[in-house]
Amino acid sequence: MDIKEELKPPQDSVVVEDSYHMVTRRGFVSWLTVGWGAFAGATAIMGAAFQRFLFPNVLREPPQEFKIGFPNDFLEGVVDLRMQDKYGIWVVRGFDPATSQTGIYVLSVICTHLGCTPTWLESEAKFKCPCHGSGFYKTGINFEGPAPRPLERFRVVLAEDGQVQVDKGKKFQYEKGEWTQPEAFLKV
């Protein structure tokens, strides 16, 4: 109560003599609107200009379809890490319990939880993600940590020259039952 009284200015002090320099409420709000409008307009124009960056002139993308060598370049039962840096894939040759077939399958190196790259631990025979501890079997099936689904597999076929050809543009997800599709697995 008393605080409110204190805040009120003394009545006689509100005396305006110079009406030319006085800013009215209406005038202030008008100028404020103009100012904010100009700011919003400038921001919009700049935002529109930035759209150009979404369409670069040159796009350096690694090829999505590539040959990785002959089937015999891959050893039986070994998780091949040679293609990890260049193409972002792990190549495994051997019996695949997930589909009950023997041959070659190609796993994505991206953890299905948050996208880190797991590490292959040979002695524990598992992929272990350093970010939140997700673990995957050699087949790509998730079994520990928070990863909600198995690693993705990529299309793998035999090219005409007998090399193994991988297509990262086509992925196969276990939870959708896609691993049993013909090109998700290369029978050797």
Partner: peptide, 20 residues
Amino acid sequence: TVTPNPAKAPWYFLGLQEML
């Protein structure tokens, strides 16, 4: 394709990382 092991968030976000 190389994630440091362990990969840790900045210290003030480690609670969020634990939540993940």
